[in-house]
Design a protein around this nucleic acid. Sequence first.
DNA 1: TTATTATGGTTTGTAGCGCAAACTAGTTTG
DNA 2: CAAACTAGTTTGCGCTACAAACCATAATAA
Lengths: 102, 102
Amino acid sequence: MDEGLRSLTDLDRVIHEPARLLIVTILSTVESADFLFLQRETGLTKGNLSAHLTKLEGAGYVEITKTFKGKLPLTICKLTKPGLKAFNSYRQQLAKFIDKTG
Amino acid sequence: MDEGLRSLTDLDRVIHEPARLLIVTILSTVESADFLFLQRETGLTKGNLSAHLTKLEGAGYVEITKTFKGKLPLTICKLTKPGLKAFNSYRQQLAKFIDKTG
DNA sequence: TTATTATGGTTTGTAGCGCAAACTAGTTTG
DNA sequence: CAAACTAGTTTGCGCTACAAACCATAATAA
């Protein structure tokens, strides 16, 4: 039995959560994105999106900047370098798994 | 933006949990496996393994047969056809994701 | 002016989850 | 008999994801 499979159990849970994987994937394709853009793209509720972003920020994977567009709040999200690294590692781990299980 | 990414949010959560993905992956390579074999291979605690197996059984992904080896209990686990199908779909979904995010 | 509605989020409440410690039932050993 | 081992299951707890409810501000209506 392939012992490398056991590494599945140390997948990064912050990234592994599907909603966050989606968020991070989107952020990896743009320089930055605002809250409402992410909400439209992900289809998440505001509350859910807010919670996931807070979690990603807590992990240091996303940088969140609160500003204003005219007089309305505007929350800008940007993948950090550690966030990108974690994302890439995660994908690589998945790719290995896919490869092994053919 | 690729709308197919949104399908990430409907990944099968039963399979998506790393410990269970590991269990299912192992079971996909053998005809059947007993509890202690799975425990050795996965490195999970008995309690944890038991709970995950119960969950997999509840989803109809694993069939669990309790018998005896001599006078000692012996729990045999076997991936069901739906379980294999779910596993394959899950891998395919992951593969697509890996592909898309290059 | 005072309501009312809309915008852009955050906080709260709840059900469910993963985990290991504690427990159970039976068996063997001293 | 008691103690220790085997093969698991159940319990207790802290954490999580989710949407409903909420909040602050701004625009619009009466």
